[in-house]
């Protein structure tokens, strides 16, 4: 296992020569059907996760600069979405589970639907909610009896490995980022904690692969964002099963690199403790979207 001085790693930005890879794992098991109350509307966990994932793809697209030569997005990164339940299924299905270039993905959504987005209104000087037609790529589904999280992580491991080997220049890229969106309960073969560990051991010259987790449960009374240690979780999660899974997901998640923590502070003015993990528990949609949209932004990625 390679090691780096913290200040020497996670510094690369994405560009044509050093493209990035984003993998999203989406829990589609039956347990994701638990209801969540948001305002006066009721959703299921799975719907929330699917919405969030689509939002995330939109935010990655919106952050990818436009190429003045082609009028398309710059070819900066590849993206893959794996859904898992009874089995692991690539959800952007046109390439048999191969990562898809962001510029191709952007041009081929499944369709468009109205969503409410918060925007800063210059005239009113505050954030307002506006309805926008937003493209989407993932449809909601939660009908499996099992939750093969370990298999999904193993699949992601192979994808990362193949992707790194496909082009030597990728060795110098910002390391791939894997984001796991789940209600936490693994129910299938293998050990997700071990699988997560192997993924985090893959690396490029710029650092180890990053694995972040987003834990959604129907218990929306408490929520945690980027905790530093497992004790915080024990104190805040009352339900024993959920607590166990929250701790597991916390253990599976990478520490947030210093360069990204710095960016988070600059972007959101939110202080992150040293050693904070890329783990978010019971995120309300805003938290989730904040987490995702900056969590996928490597150091200096979209600046200058």
């Amino acid at each position: 296992m390679a090691t780096w001085e913290p200040e020497d790693s996670y510094r690369k930005s994405w560009n044509r020569q050093h493209r990035g890879l984003l993998i999203f794992l989406l829990d589609q098991s039956g347990s994701m059907r638990q209801p969540v109350q948001i305002g006066n509307r009721q959703y299921t966990n799975g719907e929330m996760a699917t919405l969030a994932l689509n939002d995330l793809i939109v935010s990655v697209i919106n952050n990818t600069p436009i190429d003045s030569q082609t009028g398309r997005l710059k070819d900066y990164c590849d993206l893959l979405v794996l859904g898992y339940g009874n089995q692991v299924t690539p959800l952007l299905d046109n390439r048999q589970g191969m990562p898809i270039s962001i510029k191709d993905l952007a041009e081929n959504p499944l369709g468009r639907r109205p969503v409410l987005v918060e925007k800063y209104d210059r005239v009113q000087g505050k954030k307002v909610q506006v309805q926008e037609m937003q493209p989407y790529w993932i449809n909601y589904s939660a009908d499996s009896t099992k939750t093969e999280m370990a298999k999904a992580l193993q699949r992601a491991y192979r994808v990362v490995q193949d992707w790194l080997q496909a082009d030597l220049r990728r060795r110098q890229s910002f390391p791939p980022i894997v984001i796991n969106i789940t209600d936490g309960a693994h129910n299938g073969e293998g050990d997700p904690i071990e699988a997560a560990k192997s993924i985090r051991q893959l690396y490029t010259d710029d650092g180890h692969v990053l694995l972040f987790s987003c834990h959604l449960t129907s218990n929306s009374t408490s929520h945690l964002v980027f905790p530093r240690d497992a004790q915080v979780i024990s104190r805040n999660v009352s339900n024993a099963d959920e607590r166990e899974w929250a701790v597991n997901l916390f253990e599976m998640s990478s520490e947030i690199p210093a360069t990204m923590a710095k960016r988070a502070r600059e972007s959101f003015n939110a202080g992150l403790p040293d050693g904070a993990r890329g783990f978010i528990y019971n995120a309300n949609p805003a938290d989730l979207i904040d987490f995702l949209s900056w969590g996928t932004r490597p150091s200096q990625n979209f600046e200058r």
Binding site: N63, P65, I66, S68, F302, E303, R304
Partner: peptide, 11 residues
């Protein structure tokens, strides 16, 4: 002038 490449058509 150094155009911000995250913006649109900075050159």
């Amino acid at each position: 002038c150094d155009g911000a490449s995250g913006s649109s058509l900075p050159r």
